[in-house]
Design a protein around this nucleic acid. Structure first.
Length: 380
DNA sequence: TCTGGGGTCCTAGGACCC
DNA sequence: TCTGGGGTCCTAGGACCC
C-alpha cells in the first residue's frame, strides 16, 4: 500500500480541523511562585516538594536552574540531592498556589467562555469564535501572556493549534515563556523532528517499545505503514500514527467544558511502618472520613469502594467492591473496607508502607433523587 | 537513587445474560 | 458431547499525567 493510499484510507472527517485551541501552561509553577514571594530563591537550583529535613519524598516542581542538573518532577529527593548537593528545598505553600491558580484561571476565562482547566497550572481555551485566524490567535496569546505577567508576575508558555493535544505539544517546544503556533497544514512537519515522548501519554514504557523498533521521533513513526503500526503497537499506536500524520484524532463532540469527576481518593505513605493493624486502621478511617465528606460537599453518591495496600517491596494490591446502589454513608464505606481488608489480616502490618481508600462510580444526586433517598432512609 | 498524592484511562479476564 | 457470539458489568493491574 502506498502512502497516498494510506492517507485516503481514513475517513475524510478525521482530516478536517475546524477549531483553534489555545493551551496555557505556567512555567515551573510552584517554584516560580516561591521565587516571586522570596526573591532570594531566584537564580538558584530550587526544589518544591518532599521534606527538606529528612530529604525524603519526591520533587513536585523545580526551577530551571535545578533542571540543568537533571532534576525533574517525580524524582526522589534523595537522588536530586546527589545530582546537586547545594540544591535548596522548600516544602511548598499549596494554599497560595491554589489562590494564584484561581486568579490566573479567572484571567483566562475573560478570553473565551469555552475553557477547560486541566490542572493547577494549565488550561485549554477554545478560541474558534473569538479570533478569525491563526495570526489573530497569536496576538491574543501574546496579550494573555502579558496580562498574566502584569497581574501575577509569572510567565507561561502557550501553544496554539487545531486540537487540544497539538496545542499542548506546541506549548512545550519553546518553554519557558514560549509561544508556538501550529496551523493545520503544518502539523506533520511540526511533529516530524520531535521526540516520540513529546506526545502526552507516551512515557517510559511506551518509549521502550518504540525504541526497540528504531522509532525515536514522530517522523520515524509517521513513515511506517499503518498495518505494521497496528501489528506492533496496537490500537494506541495506530491513534498515535494518525496524530503524527496530521489527522484529527479528537472527536468534535468531545466535551470541552466541565469534566465530571470519576473518583475521590486518599492515600498515605507511612513515615515509619506500624507494628499493629490498629494503627493502620486509624489512617484508613481518617481517609474514609475525608473522602465521604468530600463526596457530600460535591453532592456525589458512590457505588464502588476500593482499598489499596502497598508493601515494603513496592508490590501494590487493590481490592474493590461495588454496592447494589449508589450510597452516601461513611458506614457503608467502612464496612466494605473492613471486608476487603480481611484478605490481608494475616499479613505482618509492618510490611505495609501505604494504605489508600477510593470511592468511584460517582453520580451527582439531584434534589428529586435526594428526597427519594431520604424517603427510603438510605443515608446516615 | 529508593520511590508522594491526586487523578484518568486502558486492557484483560471472568461472570452472566440472551 | 465438547460446546456460538455478542453485550455488559465487575475486578485487578498498570501506564501515565500534573
Amino acid at each position: 500500500m502506498t502512502l497516498v493510499n494510506q492517507m485516503t484510507y481514513f475517513s475524510e472527517k478525521e482530516q478536517t480541523f475546524d477549531k483553534i485551541i489555545l493551551y496555557m501552561d505556567l512555567d515551573a509553577f510552584f517554584a516560580n511562585v516561591e521565587i516571586r514571594e522570596n526573591p532570594k530563591l531566584s537564580g538558584i537550583p530550587l526544589i518544591v516538594g518532599g521534606n527538606p529535613q529528612t530529604k525524603r519524598g519526591v520533587v513536585s516542581t523545580c526551577s530551571y536552574e535545578a533542571r540543568e542538573y537533571g532534576i525533574h518532577s517525580g524524582m526522589p529527593i534523595s537522588q536530586a540531592v546527589k545530582l546537586c548537593p547545594h540544591v535548596t528545598i522548600v516544602r511548598g505553600t499549596f494554599k497560595l498556589y491554589s489562590k494564584v491558580s484561581e486568579n490566573i484561571m479567572k484571567i483566562l476565562s475573560d478570553y473565551s467562555p469555552i475553557m477547560k482547566i486541566a490542572g493547577n497550572d494549565e488550561a485549554y481555551l477554545d478560541v474558534t469564535n473569538v479570533v478569525s485566524d491563526y495570526e489573530e490567535a497569536r496576538r491574543l496569546a501574546t496579550e494573555l501572556k502579558d496580562d498574566i505577567l502584569a497581574s501575577e508576575h509569572l510567565t507561561c508558555s502557550i501553544g496554539v493549534a487545531p486540537t487540544k493535544i497539538l496545542a499542548k505539544i506546541a506549548s512545550e517546544v519553546d518553554k519557558p515563556d514560549g509561544l508556538t503556533v501550529v496551523k493545520p497544514l503544518e502539523i506533520s512537519d511540526f511533529l516530524a523532528p520531535l521526540k516520540i515522548t513529546a506526545i502526552p501519554g507516551i512515557g517510559k514504557k511506551s518509549y521502550q517499545v518504540f525504541q526497540n523498533n528504531s522509532i525515536e521521533t514522530c517522523g520515524d513513526l509517521a513513515n511506517l505503514f499503518y498495518q505494521l503500526v497496528f501489528q506492533k503497537f496496537g490500537k494506541y499506536g495506530l491513534k498515535t500514527w494518525k496524530l503524527v500524520n496530521g489527522y484529527n484524532t479528537e472527536k468534535t463532540d468531545e466535551k470541552f467544558n466541565g469534566h465530571e469527576r470519576k473518583s475521590i481518593s486518599e492515600e498515605r505513605t507511612f513515615f515509619n511502618n506500624y507494628s499493629s493493624w490498629l494503627d493502620i486502621w486509624v489512617h484508613i478511617d481518617s481517609a474514609i472520613k475525608t473522602i465521604v465528606s468530600k463526596a457530600k460537599d460535591k453532592k456525589m453518591h458512590f457505588r464502588t469502594i476500593s482499598l489499596k495496600i502497598r508493601f515494603n517491596d513496592f508490590e501494590t494490591a487493590t481490592r474493590a467492591h461495588s454496592l447494589t446502589c449508589h450510597e452516601t454513608s461513611e458506614r457503608q464505606v467502612r464496612e466494605a473496607v473492613k471486608t476487603l481488608l480481611g484478605e490481608y489480616s494475616s499479613k505482618d502490618p509492618s510490611s505495609i508502607r501505604l494504605v489508600g481508600v477510593k470511592i468511584s462510580n460517582l453520580k451527582k444526586i439531584d434534589a428529586h433523587q435526594k428526597t427519594l433517598a431520604q424517603f427510603f432512609n438510605k443515608s446516615d
